[in-house]
Amino acid sequence: MSKVQNNKAWWLVLPVFLLVAFSAIIPMMTVVNYSVQDIFDQSSRYFVGADWFRQVLQDPRLHDSLLRQFIYSFCVLLIEIPLGIGIALTMPTKGRWSSLCLIVMTIPLLIPWNVVGTIWQIFGRGDIGLLGYALNNFFHINYNYAANASDAWVTVLVIDVWHWTSLVALLCYSGLRAIPDVYYQAARIDRASNWAVFRHIQLPKMKSVLLIAVMLRFMDSFMIYTEPFVLTGGGPGNSTTFLSQTLTTMALGQFDLGPAAAFSLVYFLIILLVSWVFYTAMTHGEKN
């Protein structure tokens, strides 16, 4: 659609701008202020320049949780995107069944994140949980997310798949619905294989929603906090301590305002770069 140039449109955007600016810019300025000072209380604070940044950037704790975070987010995308596409392709397109599918699939999205943690905390326990009990007694796998680091890690991953694959599937489903029937009819006339239909019709049409899905899933898994916190509190050891939790412990637990603020800014810069890359890819994809 061709849009008209009209700078008066700013008046319509102004409420949103003011509201978000209030919640985004003032806190952001404060974080920047904190990050260059050593703060004991309001009256005794000292300017320290870039010291906190140096400390944070050279802190092995940050490196570890950053690495864990990237591996985790990568695994999340690797599982959820193909699975979501697959589910979307198998979903019925009309009738009662499709409504039912949609509703069931939306349920996990609407559960508060700490309750998601609680559900799996209960479900996975060896003594009172169905999953833990079954794994230990029927499959004879020694599974204990509270004591075994790799079990905890896998559990957090499974939780995320349980929680968010539906979002990817629903987005892909919406992309698929936008394909006119004519395309499929043409493919049938050409006797195209299922794979060819997928590769040349469905996948290209899903490209834009897939990009949104990848972006949302990457960002949200990158700031995951609640589920591992409820499940194991980031343990055992540090196996499920991701970036957000390291940061929260620093800021609220130890009240290290300066380092926490420096960490926040580094974290935010990473997010900013990644979302800019995705956004540019998205808008340029639309143009072509």
Partner: peptide
């Protein structure tokens, strides 16, 4: 884009100043 970055920013970053 600026609006969208706020959707992407981790709440943990804003916790203390909030």
């Amino acid at each position: 884009f600026w609006l969208l970055t706020n959707r992407m920013a981790p709440p943990a970053v804003f916790l203390l100043p909030f």
